[in-house]
Design a protein around this nucleic acid. Structure first.
Lengths: 413, 413
DNA sequence: CCGATTTAATCCATTTAATGGACTTAATAT
DNA sequence: ATATTAAGTCCATTAAATGGATTAAATCGG
């Protein structure tokens, strides 16, 4: 249900609107913000004052437009204080990044480790260590980590990882395991009657967990080549897809949407672990592709393709055709604006994009004005980690008050 | 961009919240509304007073809960005043219905006419006549028609029908042609300084136009067996699908989402008018199905099936299998809660549902906890017309002020 | 059967946050 | 140097919600 608006939520909303507009319109003056949002100059000034105090926006000097009249002071997002931590567990690595409010990446860390061999608890201990280091380093840069998202390769429901087959995880509850991570360095003494009222609303969770394919799509949206409406294909061991519509992720009724890997390419094709036959994964999944090309790793495959290896080229051709067929079905159903190929398909793009384009074009042009453009991901393996951090930033911008209420960032002094 | 909230929009929003809650919770007291919405009793009382005056809710007597304390007065949506007109142009009929705020159907009219033979202007003239009759009759029931939606069998963009191949329409602009239809019977004299200020915001369009498959899905949501998250398959000449997620229609980047008919069932199957091969439409479209069964009409086919005709049964079996394959892909991508079969598939449900269920179950159970339930549409051919009217009602409930501002329904006297 | 209790709804003074116009400030144009 | 223009702030006002007190209409208990 849509929530009722009260005085405080009106203000909260307007703070979010102003902050989002500052992000959208680059450096803007208060007057321009008033014009755009429809609020009065007075109101905008008051809201901006709060955002300045919270360290979320900063004045970046005079905005002289060459016209006459008093020049305004330009406002822009400030990357000095508020930041978010993005984390990722994948099959053979852990990674972390810290992103500030302007979506600048302030630091990255990656750690190669075989997480299939380790238990979930061990792996999460490693994540915690990595995250702790990143948080400490971010603090030394003067940043306050406002929240964190962890990307895992499998469907997630409210902090519970249902199954991550490639990690060997099943029903792992992650939320609690990392919950104390972001506690402030000197936690306020509990027990004594706190001076502020003990806010009736619980603070938002500091750590959320989400599916890696979804977060990679969001990473592409905020840091890469995605533009409001696109389908991001993240071929790893499986083949997943994240659909972004109007800047928001499409998740489906149970959060399982986007399983492109099991779209049917040929109903009587090779059997698949899902119980079906002829799923895309059997043609264009990493394993199938490497097997068909006779290569051991993606790097090796790329090397062979560069060398003009016939078998490798033929394997890519076939995989691209299959991917094109699955994407044809996906386009008919989703009607995306663009298709972005990421994951293993990114390095293979030069060889795979041709067959994909041919196949989709042949089957789409007759009944659609515009066949979705095919683009390559610019992010590679970082997409999910960046998307994880970006999601936190996005939430803060949409509702800065929730962040402030959670003890976010009062003016330091 | 999310809009800034001001005092007036806060009130508008809260009116909508209260009205939506009255609809959702059946008869409720003011006190219960205050509890649910988080607003105070005082505020709820004031909002309810406005809604009562506008004739949108009505007091339906005392709500004695058998407990002690003063019993509240029950409030419910009122179907006495505000209503909406749903219109549909299809290949061989026109239809209209009037639905009141409680979603009760107050009147229906259908007119058999071959619209392929007529020009768009002629057809729209007929629509106008039908609509005029319906509006007049509704007025005689004391209803005020607050708006109207027209369903057409093809993609629509802001009043412009891009193409409706089965009608022979191409780029027909419908909005203007019917725009004067809903003007009040005695239009207020223009020119003289009107007593109210000439509201800066333009009134919402009285007539909107939308795709028939989309509206059928919404019809199913509001009047049929749809439940918040489902995929509605509306097999007519083509095979379309409307996806409802969280009570809202999914449209895609260009409004072309849900083209289930061209999802690939077999990549080397029979050629399709879309330029591809093996699209679902070639297996389960009305034409293909009737041809395979050797029947001329759906009624004839149903008759044969009832009689146990082997060829007809086999044709349904094959069509059901193909539909199951396409739905498997759709489930992997959309992750719907339920699948509702409508259009021609509704009368064929007893024969087609078995093969569909078998095919989807075989390919989904291994990697999904829940295979979407398969249901039959309860609405039949009325779905789109009802959805069209329901859409108008839905908009009014979400934002009653826009309706009131547009001269909706001041208290009659 | 009457008073106590309980819950519904309204009344009224108060609070919050936005508005709108006047005012101040800092530029360019003449 | 002065006029003009636009940005930003100040302040009294207004819209709409809040919270507590009050009135209304039931049931419960003796």
């Amino acid at each position: 249900m849509t929530q009722a608006v009260r005085h405080d939520s009106m203000r909260a909303r307007n703070l979010g609107v102003v902050l989002a507009e500052v992000r959208r319109s680059g450096p803007v003056t208060r007057a321009a913000l008033a014009e755009i949002t429809g609020l009065t100059k007075t109101t905008v000034s008051k809201l901006v004052a709060d955002l300045l105090e919270a360290g979320m926006v900063a004045e970046t000097g005079a905005a002289s437009r060459g016209e006459r009249g008093r020049p305004g002071t330009a406002l822009a997002l400030s990357g000095e204080r508020v930041a978010a931590l993005g984390l990722e567990v994948n099959v053979d690595y852990l990674s972390a990044c810290v992103v500030d409010l302007t979506l600048s990446v302030r630091l990255r860390r990656t750690q190669a480790v075989d997480n299939r061999a380790a238990s979930p608890v061990e792996t999460l201990d490693n994540v915690r260590r990595l995250a702790r280091e990143a948080v400490d380093e971010a603090r030394s840069l003067g940043l306050v980590i406002a929240g964190s998202t962890l990307a895992v390769p499998g469907p997630v429901d409210d902090g519970l990882v249902h199954s991550a087959p490639n990690l060997g995880w099943r029903d792992v509850r992650v939320g609690d395991l990392l919950d104390d991570l972001l506690a402030p360095p000197a936690p306020p003494v509990r027990g004594g009657p706190s001076p502020q009222d003990p806010a009736a609303t619980a603070p938002p969770p500091l750590l959320t967990v989400d599916n890696e394919a979804n977060l990679a799509a969001l990473g592409e949206l905020w840091f890469g080549s995605g533009r409001r409406d696109f389908l991001h294909v993240s071929g790893e061991i499986g083949v997943g897809a994240g659909l972004v519509v109007d800047g928001a992720l499409f998740r489906g009724a149970h959060g399982l949407a986007g399983e492109l890997g099991h779209v049917i390419v040929s109903p009587d094709g090779p059997p698949c672990r899902c119980g079906g036959r002829g799923c895309l994964e059997q043609y264009a999944g990493q394993e199938a592709l490497l097997r068909a090309a006779g290569a051991g790793t993606v790097e090796e495959l790329v090397g062979r393709l560069r060398g003009g290896d016939i078998a490798a080229l033929a394997a890519c051709e076939r995989a691209g055709h299959a991917l094109g067929l699955a994407l044809t079905s996906a386009v008919h159903l989703f009607d995306p604006g663009t298709i972005v190929l990421g994951g293993v398909f990114a390095p293979l793009f030069p060889w795979i994009s041709g067959p994909v384009r041919e196949t989709t074009a042949a089957r789409l042009t007759a009944i659609r004005d515009a066949v979705p453009e095919l683009a390559v991901s610019r992010l590679g393996a970082d997409a999910a980690t960046l998307g994880a951090a970006g999601q936190v930033i996005h939430r803060i911008v949409a509702d800065p008050v929730a962040h402030l209420a959670a003890g976010g960032a009062p003016a330091p002094r």
